[in-house]
Design a protein around this nucleic acid. Sequence first.
DNA 1: ATAAAAATAATAATAATTATCATTTTTATA
DNA 2: TATAAAAATGATAATTATTATTATTTTTAT
Lengths: 131, 131
Amino acid sequence: MAVRENYSRKRNAIYQAICSTKSHPNAEWVYEQLKPQFRDLSLGTVYRNLKKFCEDGKAISVGVINGQEHFDADTTPHSHFVCDRCQSISDIYKPFFSEELLKSLNEEYGVSVTSNEVLFHGVCKECLERE
Amino acid sequence: MAVRENYSRKRNAIYQAICSTKSHPNAEWVYEQLKPQFRDLSLGTVYRNLKKFCEDGKAISVGVINGQEHFDADTTPHSHFVCDRCQSISDIYKPFFSEELLKSLNEEYGVSVTSNEVLFHGVCKECLERE
DNA sequence: ATAAAAATAATAATAATTATCATTTTTATA
DNA sequence: TATAAAAATGATAATTATTATTATTTTTAT
């Protein structure tokens, strides 16, 4: 018997796949990535597990970009940059919202903020250099 | 002949519909809203025009929220708040990104930022009061 | 070793959005 | 005003991403 794991073998592989990249993949990417290793992998399993990771706080959804949901195993607070040329998604590690600012939202708008997502659009370094 | 309009009658009506609300509607809402007036309105026409407004800079996409794209005729820089209870979307008029900050992104990450979207999640005032 | 629980594969179903194309409306201009 | 060209639309089909279903397999607990 193998070493005790928290997950099923495939669930583990899916989690490791999203941990192995900073490309903020979608379900399709993960599926293609793991297909060679797990020839009987089902796309539904990838979707199911990515959703589960988000529910369990082990991943976050970067949002729906160009019609497809993208994921990130990095759950620390950070923002994202989408290149409108090559569609790449990269991280922006810059704190935008202080505690006070979020608190001021609560006061000014009467809302209770639990999370936020910041998405920048533009042209990435690589595409800028190419152009 | 009627007063000269920039648009076809239906396109005008769709634009006025999204201008008439701060609810950040999706295509379905606009369609239901206009159906009584235009009994032969087609949902495809709504989708086509909402997309066109975004391309022409007369509206923006708030993003895909719970599987549906939402729109806003207010194109001035502002952010959005999504209530995870009642799914309402409201405006947050607070400038988060100064010119210097955006410039610093260019310098630190080598990217050229052209736009940004900020989405807060949480519980809205009305739902908080109800709970 | 084995029974119960959980996860999966295969597939069907769903839902939002986009494409197609014949018809209608609008626009430009004679 | 009439009319031809261009643009927009309705109806519908197609597409695409995602979710649901269910029989089977894997994992877990004992």
